[in-house]
């Protein structure tokens, strides 16, 4: 079993990079959406992937939740999967956010669109901070209204060792909506990530 522990210094460094990437993402999104976008400083946590579903099942227990997955690949073995968790009550807000009128766009398409916009905007900023660049796989809906999402999340998380959990709250002038983003990173990529963080720290 790979030792996946982060030192406090490494963790702080990662938090700082996430903050910068998130700031850039909110700037880009605000310009794109033509409205003020406030992204709160995300809290990050490194958790064992196996514990993820327990963690989220209490938060999403009452509502029907949707999971959207998007894979990313970078250089030097840095790769992973992001999972966005939405409460479906938010779907209408998301549609307004993306400027969809009630045309023939399905809920599924709307969710994959917002997921790819939110995650890739953030991830491309993060890649830049890590002096890397990512390519992305098309987003997939893992579970929707009918399925019990915790099972699906547990199954997905099983394939990964470490999860970087990033809580994002998007606040727009006229609406607010919350969603959670989880970055799942396999063990060997965690080692690469730590190495990259050490390099960045050494440059200071």
């Amino acid at each position: 079993m790979t030792e996946l522990h982060f030192t406090d210094v490494q963790r702080d460094c990662l938090q700082e990079l996430v903050n910068v990437a998130m700031g850039q993402a909110s700037d880009k999104l605000a310009r794109y959406l033509g409205t003020f976008v406030h992204l709160q400083v995300p809290s990050i946590a490194l958790v064992e992937a196996a514990l993820l579903s327990q963690h989220f099942s209490s938060r999403y227990q009452q509502q029907s939740a949707t999971l959207v997955s998007l894979g990313f690949f970078g250089d030097q073995g840095l790769r992973g999967e992001t999972i966005m968790l939405y409460q479906l009550a938010n779907a209408g807000v998301i549609a307004q956010l993306l400027g969809y009128s009630d045309d023939a766009v399905s809920e599924a398409e709307m969710l994959t669109d917002i997921s790819s916009v939110l995650t890739t905007t953030f991830l491309s900023g993060l890649a830049e901070q890590l002096e890397n660049s990512f390519s992305y796989a098309a987003p997939r809906i893992l579970s929707s209204r009918d399925q019990y999402f915790a099972d699906k999340l547990a199954y997905t998380a099983e394939q990964w060792q470490l999860a970087l959990q990033v809580d994002i709250r998007y606040q727009l002038t006229d609406y607010s909506f919350n969603c959670d983003m989880i970055l799942l990173i396999p063990g060997e990529a965690v080692l690469r990530l730590r190495q990259t963080l050490d390099n960045i720290l050494a440059d200071f």
């Binding site: 794109y32 994959t112 669109d113 890739t120």
Partner: peptide, 19 residues
């Protein structure tokens, strides 16, 4: 709408045959 997001955000967009 998709192409606009690609240009302005400089991130990829996707479309699936399922949708």
């Amino acid at each position: 709408r998709k192409l606009d997001s690609v240009l302005h955000l400089q991130v990829p967009a996707f479309s699936s045959w399922e949708q």
